[in-house]
Amino acid sequence: MMTIEWFTQFLAVAAALAAAPLFLGWVNQCRAWLQNRRAPSVLLVYRGIRKLFHKDAAVAEPASRLFIFTPYIVFGTMVVAAAIIPSVSTRLPFGTAADAIALVGLFATARVFMSLAAMDIGTAFGSMGARREMMVGFLAEPALLMVIFVASLISMTTALPVISERLATQALTLSPSLAFTGVAFTMVLLAENARIPIDNPATHLELTMIHEAMLLEYSARHLALLEWAAALKLLNYACIGFALFLPWGAAMGEAGPPALLTAVAFLALKLLVAGVALALIETLSAKLRVFRAPQFLATAYLFASLGLLVHLLLGA
């Protein structure tokens, strides 16, 4: 049975690595359709990454080793996170390595290194982006933790695979607390992945950038890794959302290859729908001023804590 589990683990990571640029491409395509533009190919993100890998890297003169290492560290943390999140199966050998709270820490590690690398060069835009990123991060983290606390309280554990299993197997009930935390989680997802109300991923205007501003000095394979990591981060957040709010379809417990195949199919279906939903949210909302971001994230925190309080009071 051990080999099957490790095979599942390998499959989950490989699927995440392959699907991440595809998911991002799908979101971009839906967005283009909704905005009456001609949509780019779904494979455009892949092509961009491949093109970047074939180029020679130019590194700024004052860059320290931190600047060179950061893309590998960020990409590595995202791969580890993809190995922990029960996207395909809840029985993953890596799943026991870290619980949901450690997962939040893992994302924070990536963010800290990104910000440090952005400030390393000493350009104005890099430091500005880093500072904004830290502001968004420190406001989004409490909301994300609160969301995880509610799910943990309902299932009495902080291990993500176990939460997912218990939520999937319990009797289907109307749960206002999960609905509230679902809204909060969506808001955190938008903020953490530099999506529209907080940051515009397609912007070329340096003054409004957050995530893009930190990447300005990177080129070639470093940039490719960072863009791949960003796509992976979006996929990871979507998979955390599925594990907490739509756990049905993933393979539960001991599962053979047929169950895994259906689980992968279910994941693809969920990602397809989530991509459309994400594009819809982004099309319907306008980008907020940076100084309105605290209000947006305070609302997310409010939703999450309301979910917690309602769960404690009503037990639902």
Binding site: T173, L174, P176, S177, A179, F180, L306, V310, L314, A316
Partner: peptide, 9 residues
């Protein structure tokens, strides 16, 4: 359950 959901609303 519906009553609780309405209360939360």
């Amino acid at each position: 359950q519906i009553l609780n959901a309405l209360a939360a609303l």
